[in-house]
Design a binder for these strands. Structure first.
Length: 395
DNA sequence: AATGCGGGGTA
DNA sequence: TACCCAGCATT
């Protein structure tokens, strides 16, 4: 057991990637990184973390910021309860500072078993174990754990092993190095498919490798296929007049809670009635998006500009307002609405560069059917409408 | 124990 | 496609 722990920290010292949050000892900075990294890849997180730390450099700065600003900085990362909880957590520890022990960190909103272990070990040097997806894979192979790693039994076995490993770590070595070393191993060598056992420092200790079972472990329950996800159909209204567009803010809990989007409802007439506008009968675009547990299909309709906006008129939202196109980029807008808006060249694209946003400007047109090319989003303009309508009309 | 909760990279 | 990502909260 101590052989394994030692091999991990020694390997980590050798190959440790130079990530931005590894250059600091600030517990808050590490906290932010760990929350962003929940179910999110390192490469995705890096630019978000950099912008976040520049905008909210301290717990106090975050605690004092309006939730709107917090969500704007998070927009695009997904799982927005992470941002809401981080904000709430910052307010909770605004005066006292972040607790240093894993057991106390667990009381902070958004900090679960993994994140508590990560902050305690990395920022405070506590010998606290952790298990994430990477560590689960590594330990399941090294110790030949055959229980489903997502199951209660599997998690129990994994945390138990992780705890033993941490207890076996010789004292001069940093607990954070063991934990990060395990994760690093899972991310770079002990990968889900095609693990590179030939260069793995644990190969001599790994039951899976020794028995040639590295492709059979870990055992993980199959997830729902794409066609098994329930489809949620929504109607969104695109209400624009000149430079101004109508956006609504979702209530702070639940899906996309607190984010701004084109006002949506179950059908176009519901939304039109709530806002007191007329709306075109035919959709100008559809946007499909796959979430963890459902598929989203948003039909986009053009309509007239409402004379007066009443907060609370549309269920599910707590605010509704007009924004100039230039302001949209500084709002917390989820990916679906961002993708829809970006299809129209009238919308300035000054929000976070998302690599694949490709050409907000190019093409369009394609008066032929075939979805507009170039973007990874599934937004596409309905075929029959596009040549006829294009922008303007109504309003 | 199961479900809700985003978005994107990749084999 | 399907899989998975430095998971957490709620039921």
């Amino acid at each position: 057991m101590d052989d394994v722990a030692l091999a991990v920290v020694q390997h980590y010292a050798k190959v440790r990637r130079d990530l931005p949050w590894r250059r600091t000892h600030d517990p808050y900075a590490i906290w932010v990184s760990e929350v962003m990294l929940q179910q999110t890849r390192v490469q995705t997180v890096i630019p978000y973390w950099e912008r976040w730390m520049a905008k909210f450099p301290t717990v106090r700065a975050l605690a004092d910021a309006p939730l709107d600003d917090v969500l704007a900085a998070w927009a695009g990362l997904g799982y927005y309860s992470r941002a809401r909880n981080l904000h709430k957590g910052a307010q909770a520890v605004r005066e006292s500072g972040l607790p240093s022990k894993a057991s106390e960190l667990r009381d902070v909103p958004g900090i679960g078993p993994y994140t508590a272990g990560a902050i305690a070990s990395i920022a405070f040097g506590e010998k606290a174990p952790l298990v994430d997806g990477n560590v689960a894979r590594v330990l399941a192979r090294v110790f030949a754990i055959t229980a489903d790693i997502k199951s209660t039994a599997g998690q129990k076995a994994l945390w138990s092993r992780a705890g033993e490993l941490m207890a076996a770590l010789p004292s001069p070595h940093a607990p954070g190095a063991l934990n990060q070393g395990l994760m690093e191993l899972g991310a770079t060598i002990c990968t889900p498919t095609g693990p590179r056992c030939l260069v793995c420092p644990l190969v001599k200790h790994c039951r899976a490798a020794i028995e040639g079972r590295q492709d059979e472990l870990p055992v993980v329950a199959k997830r729902k296929g794409l066609d098994e996800l329930p489809v949620l159909a929504r109607a969104a209204l695109w209400l624009q007049q000149g430079d101004e567009i109508v956006l609504a803010r979702r209530r702070a809990e639940g899906l996309f809670g607190g984010l701004w989007e084109l006002p949506q409802g179950d059908d176009r007439l519901e939304v039109a009635r709530a806002l007191g506008v007329t709306v075109d009968p035919d959709a100008v675009a559809y946007h499909d998006q796959v979430l963890s547990h459902r598929r989203l299909r948003i039909a986009v309709f053009r309509g007239g500009m409402p004379a007066r906006l009443v907060a609370g008129a549309l269920s599910g939202y707590d605010r509704i307002a007009r924004f100039s196109l230039g302001e949209v980029g500084s709002l917390g807008v989820a990916a679906a609405t961002t993708a829809i808006l970006s299809k129209y060249e009238a919308t300035p694209w000054n929000s976070i560069p998302k690599r694949s946003s490709s050409s907000p400007k190019a093409t369009r047109r394609s008066s032929k059917g075939s979805a507009a090319s170039g973007t990874t989003s599934r937004t596409r303009t309905s075929q029959k409408r596009r040549s006829a309508r294009r922008r303007g009309s109504t309003s």
